[in-house]
Every structure is written in C-alpha cells, then in structure tokens.
Simulated scan of single mutants.
Amino acid sequence: MLRLHFTAEDLLRVAFAPEPAPLMELGLAVAALRRRAPSPVLSRWQHRARQTFPADARPLLDLIPPTARGPMFLDPLSRGLEEGLDTVLSTPTERVRAELDGRVPEVLRPTPWIRRLADRDRESWEELERALRAAYDGLLADSWKHIQSAFDAERAWRTRLLAQHGIRIALAGLGPGGRWDGTTLVFDTPEDRHIALSGHGVTLLPSTVWTGHPLVAAYDDAPGILIYGAAAPLPLLAERAAHDSSPLDALLGRTRAAALELLTRQRTTSELARELDISKSSASEHTKALRDARLITTQRDGKAVRHACTPLGLDLLTTGVKG
C-alpha cells in the first residue's frame, strides 16, 4: 500500500498544477512504453509507440524504468517544453550525482553513459537533450493539444468535486482503493511505501499516459507532486478528436462518457458492450476506470456483473464539466 501522510498544513495547501508538464508526461510515457502489461486501453498505443520510437530517444530507456521511478531531475513540473529542458540542463551537479548514484541503481543498470552524465560530460548532456526532444516529438507532440484539453476538463471536474464534496472524497478518488486513515491517504499498490509530506502541501497532476497506481514525488523544501491517471487516457483522446465532442467527452473520452450515460440504468457488462458495440473486455476496462473514479458501482449477481451510476456519476452527467 501507498500511505501518504499529511499534516494539517499540507491539507490546506492542496492545489492543482496549472497545466500539464511536458517532461513529466514524457517520462511517464517512456515508462508506460516499457511496461510489459499495460492497461488494455494503452496496449495499441504501446505497440505503435515501440515501433516508431526515435533512435535518438533510446538513451532515455537507460534512465527511465517501467515503474517511472527514475532520477527526479529529468521531469520537472514546468510550463512548456523549453522551460522544462532549461530546468533539466541547469540541474546542479550535486543533485545529478546524488540521484544517479542513489536512485538509478535501485531500478536500472548504471551504464557508462549514465556515469558520464553524473560526471557532467558535455557530449553526454547534449545527447540527453537530443533524446528528450526526440522522444517528445515522437510520443507527445502531435497529441499535445488534446492532452491540454483533457487536462483542463479534468482540472475543472476535480476542482468542482473538491468544492462540493470536500478534500477527502476528492483525493480518495484519485486511485484504486483510495481511502483515509486519519490524516493518511492510502492507495492499494504493490509496494508498501510510507511518504511523509513536508508541510508545503501537494500539487495534483493528472497524466494521460499513466494508468498505474498513483505516484508521489516528495521534496523537503517544496510541495509534493501526486501523479494519477487521468479519466481519459491518451488513446481515448485520439478517439474523441475524431468526433464532435462535449466537455464530458474531453474528460472521459467519447466511449467512456457514453458508458456513463447508459449506466443511469443498471446494466451488465455484456449489455454495455452490446449497446456500445465494443468487446466485453473493452467494456470491462471502461467500467473499471469509471469505478476507480467512483462514478459507478459494481455488484455481482450470480454469473453476471451489474453496473450503475453513483450519485457522483449522476451529478457529473447532469451538470457537465464546468470551470
């Protein structure tokens, strides 16, 4: 389990990132690319991205593991690609060495190139910049406007959720099994980790390419960053872009929004798949995402699995996504 320990000051300083962070999203995209068993929603994207991954970007595979727990200096919370690159390239040498020596051996094999990065070798750092630019162009550049639109819709919904239902419900809904134990936010994760925030609060950052459990970057002198999977992953954004869309489509993706609308009346997974003209496995994936967001409930009735909107899901349908 992931246990995120809040102080009273941290709870008062929960804020949303103002916009998606290109290098943060890029690092998560590379990590998703490397995962053996991603969410079914990402599997086709993963296959295509592996085939077209630029050769100049391959050095990043030495730095970013499938867990996304690589060196933190690679993915600053920045406004725009150029600002992020400037931040990476100006990282103090002491921090670079500490993170490459201390973090990378836990998850990756320290290659000669990584050692040269730690020694601040100029050519190695130029290679890193080329790799970041190439990876961004290959994985995210063409979709960035859609990612921005989904981020805006997600932020509007979560902000409204926070205002209407309070911080406990808003934060617990960011990942599977989210719940509170006093002032500790708990998520179901494969690893047992305790992370204490520093009193500077936490910044919420949704990702369209990460479908794993929430990730936390904690700092001693700055707000922590809580990364979670957005309601609409990147493949659903491409689907939405091909059709006329509503604000709800921007948040959930066209098919997932349609599924939520159908579940105003209780339906089984098979019924949902038939009405949406999708496979049963795809319908199951969509209902899991809606359930994790607390928009629907699921109950087993013999061999059948029945789904229905929660009050929160109905509230979202009746009001739409408003800023």
Results as ranks from 00 to 15, higher is better:
residue 207 S to C: 11
residue 279 S to Q: 03
residue 230 A to K: 07
residue 205 L to D: 02
residue 202 V to D: 00
residue 211 T to R: 09
residue 226 L to M: 10
residue 192 D to T: 02
residue 196 A to E: 15
residue 203 T to Q: 07
residue 216 V to P: 01
residue 271 E to R: 05
residue 252 L to G: 08
residue 197 L to E: 08
residue 268 T to C: 03
residue 269 T to Q: 13
residue 226 L to C: 07
residue 209 V to E: 06
residue 229 G to I: 05
residue 225 I to L: 13
residue 276 L to K: 11
residue 241 A to K: 09
residue 206 P to W: 09
residue 256 R to G: 03
residue 227 I to S: 13
residue 246 S to D: 10
residue 206 P to E: 08
residue 205 L to I: 03
residue 215 L to V: 02
residue 192 D to E: 09
residue 263 L to W: 08
residue 218 A to E: 12
residue 266 Q to K: 13
residue 194 H to C: 01
residue 243 H to P: 00
residue 284 S to K: 12
residue 201 G to K: 06
residue 274 R to H: 12
residue 283 A to Y: 12
residue 212 G to S: 10
residue 198 S to H: 06
residue 267 R to G: 04
residue 208 T to G: 03
residue 230 A to H: 06
residue 279 S to V: 00
residue 284 S to V: 03
residue 273 A to N: 08
residue 221 D to A: 14
residue 268 T to R: 00
residue 233 P to T: 13
residue 215 L to S: 02
residue 273 A to R: 06
residue 204 L to K: 04
residue 268 T to E: 04
residue 207 S to M: 10
residue 235 P to H: 04
residue 262 L to C: 13
residue 214 P to Y: 00
residue 252 L to A: 09
residue 262 L to Y: 15
residue 231 A to D: 05
residue 232 A to T: 06
residue 191 E to Y: 01
residue 228 Y to V: 07
residue 272 L to M: 09
residue 232 A to R: 14
residue 276 L to M: 10
residue 201 G to N: 09
residue 224 G to F: 12
residue 234 L to W: 01
residue 196 A to W: 14
residue 192 D to V: 04
residue 283 A to L: 10
residue 253 G to K: 10
residue 269 T to G: 14
residue 223 P to G: 09
residue 272 L to P: 08
residue 271 E to F: 01
residue 279 S to I: 01
residue 201 G to R: 09
residue 252 L to V: 09
residue 269 T to F: 02
residue 206 P to G: 09
residue 237 L to M: 14
residue 201 G to M: 06
residue 262 L to N: 09
residue 256 R to C: 12
residue 284 S to P: 02
residue 233 P to Q: 14
residue 253 G to Q: 11
residue 206 P to S: 11
residue 267 R to W: 03
residue 255 T to D: 12
residue 228 Y to A: 06
residue 233 P to N: 14
residue 281 S to W: 06
residue 214 P to N: 02
residue 231 A to C: 04
residue 261 E to V: 06
residue 258 A to P: 00
residue 194 H to G: 00
